[in-house]
Simulated assay, not measured.
Amino acid sequence: MFIRTLSSINRFSLLSILRTHSTTSNTTHFGFDEVPENEKQTRVNEVFSSVADSYDLMNDIMSFGIHRIWKDHFIRIVRPDPQWNYIDVAGGTGDIAFRYLKELDRYYPSAASSIPLSESPITPTHTYIADSLEQTRIRPTSKCVVADINPNMLAVGKQRSIDNNLHNRIQWIETNAEELPFEDEQFDVYTIAFGIRNCTHIDRVVSEAYRVLKKGGRFLCLEFSQVNNTLLRYFYDQYSKTFIPPMGQIIANDWKSYQYLIESIRVFPKQKEFAELIRSCNFRYVNFENLSFGVSTIHSGYKL
């Protein structure tokens, strides 16, 4: 693993990045396919509705359990603080939020007895779907918020939070990462893990993160990326293509969804490209750290 601070690339390069990952103003990538922008989210929802119940099991199988090490390291970088308002986006199963709370309790045991959620303008199940953002933006009612667009993934996370006795410490929000329902400058830390590549407009997701973060707040993204060794990249590509879809069929009875998941990794911006996109959304001190030779990468930036 290593941290590498990036130098700026010119505006022409950034425009090339955005063109590559949104082929025209009306189309975008869904895996290797080019689809109308207004269809991608529906297709992504279908994928995650299909894999929700087996999602964490498949992550273990696909990564040989290494995703757990990546996520643990990710949260150690976050360094939770009990005073912070924290949001995890595209985190429906709760995997990152649970780690955040447990890491918080490890260093601040009193945080476990934090005040339960107060009454709020959202439903008792803490699920919110934005209709008119300009008129209905809200403030978080918990120090820990999980946002995801897919209700099936959220249902898995809610049940897991009950099983882990964390249900009274998390606010669950059903919403699009490109249009969060919160007022400006509400959070100290924003994380998104293995979710941003499934969004239609990556730049809008990062811009929304900037909007809802407080001054001094930090954006952290864990995502699959480009293996930086040519030989390892070849073997990794072969493994992905020949192993993951068949295992998806065996474990989840779903070949196509896992075929999409590996294709979505291939079309996601490479490390330097994504770092420049983050910087273009006004984040500062942007850097990244490769994990497992770049199989996944942690990107970081601050709102100043």
Rank of each mutant, 00 (worst) to 15 (best):
N164T: 13
R266I: 06
G216S: 10
D148S: 10
E273K: 09
I244P: 10
G65S: 11
Y86H: 13
S142G: 13
R76L: 08
V286S: 03
N165T: 10
Y285T: 09
C144V: 14
T175K: 03
I298P: 11
P151A: 07
R106H: 10
K71D: 07
T123F: 02
K40N: 08
T42M: 04
F2C: 00
L6Y: 01
E208F: 03
S300A: 04
A147K: 08
N150Y: 06
M62H: 04
S300T: 02
D131H: 10
S257H: 05
N85V: 02
E174N: 15
F98N: 08
R106P: 06
F293Q: 06
L15Q: 11
L213E: 04
Y258C: 02
Y107R: 14
T242W: 00
E185D: 13
I278F: 01
F224I: 08
E208N: 11
S296F: 01
R99V: 07
D88P: 12
F48T: 10
V89W: 04
L304V: 01
T191A: 07
I69R: 05
K241A: 14
R79N: 15
I115N: 14
R279H: 02
N176I: 08
V146Y: 05
G92W: 05
S225A: 14
W255I: 00
A252G: 12
Q171A: 13
N152G: 12
Q226T: 15
G217V: 00
I173S: 01
F219G: 01
P245A: 03
K272W: 02
L180P: 05
S161Y: 11
S118K: 03
A209I: 00
N287G: 07
Y239A: 03
I138N: 01
R19M: 14
S50N: 14
F288H: 09
V78C: 13
T123P: 04
D72K: 06
V212S: 08
G195P: 12
V267L: 14
H29Q: 09
R11K: 09
G195R: 06
F194A: 10
R279M: 01
L104I: 07
T127A: 08
R137W: 01
S8T: 03
Q135T: 11
M247F: 03
L231Q: 04
D184V: 01
R284A: 09
F182Y: 10
G157H: 09
V206G: 04
T141L: 06
Y128F: 14
M62R: 02
H201I: 02
G65T: 10
F243H: 01
A275C: 11
I149E: 04
I122L: 13
F219E: 01
E34C: 12
S292W: 00
L104H: 12
A252I: 00
V212W: 02
L6K: 04
R204C: 14
V205W: 03
D148H: 05
D163L: 13
H29D: 09
A130L: 13
R106D: 05
V47Y: 04
D148N: 11
S22A: 15
I61W: 00
L154C: 11
T297E: 11
E276H: 02
Q171N: 08
